[in-house]
Simulated assay, not measured.
Amino acid sequence: MIDLAKLRVAVQQELDDYPVPPPRHPDLVGSALPAEWFERGLAEMREALVEPYVTEAVWFDSVAQQQVSRPVAVVADDQGAHVIALDIEGDEFELFFRSDDALHSMNVRGDAVGCFLAR
């Protein structure tokens, strides 16, 4: 079972350690986002942090052509349409949108901060 207290500490540490702006990937093209964009996103995430809790989320299984649900641990909720949660089975953070009183995967996975900034 997942330790929600440890998860909360880990997410807070990731948020506190996030570099502003993060290092630019050498293969990226175009203009870099300004540091202010990242600072604003990090401030929004700090406000969106919640005490982690376990709930169900929905994915679309393209092989089976059906929706499947499994448990996730929610760590941030922007009180709008987006939630960041740890996919407990996949052991990776993911961006979800709230619709019809359910959480649906947006297939954006990675670190908690990166998923939040991808909203």
Rank of each mutant, 00 (worst) to 15 (best):
V72W: 02
V20P: 11
W59Y: 14
A5S: 14
R46F: 08
R119Q: 15
G114Y: 02
F60A: 06
L86F: 02
Q13F: 02
E89I: 02
E94I: 04
V113K: 13
E47V: 12
A48M: 12
P71S: 03
E14R: 08
G90A: 09
L4R: 11
F93P: 00
V83W: 05
E51K: 06
M106Q: 11
Q67F: 09
G41L: 14
D101Q: 09
L15S: 06
A10N: 08
F38I: 14
Y53N: 02
V68M: 08
E56S: 04
A81W: 12
A48H: 13
D101L: 02
E92G: 00
S105M: 08
Q65H: 07
A35H: 07
L7K: 10
D100C: 04
H104E: 07
L42Y: 09
D101A: 06
L33W: 11
Q13D: 05
V83H: 05
R98A: 10
P21D: 07
A64M: 10
F96K: 06
D101C: 02
A5E: 15
P34R: 15
R98S: 11
L103I: 07
L28N: 09
D16K: 14
S69I: 01
H82C: 05
W37Y: 13
R40G: 08
E39V: 06
A81V: 12
S69A: 06
F93K: 08
E47M: 13
M106R: 13
F60W: 14
R70Y: 03
Y18M: 10
A57C: 05
F97A: 06
V74P: 03
V50C: 09
G41T: 15
R119P: 07
E36F: 00
E92Y: 00
F93D: 09
A48C: 11
F60S: 06
D27R: 15
D61R: 12
F97V: 12
D91L: 03
Q13R: 15
S62C: 03
S31H: 08
A81D: 15
E39Q: 15
D101R: 04
A73D: 02
A85E: 01
F116E: 09
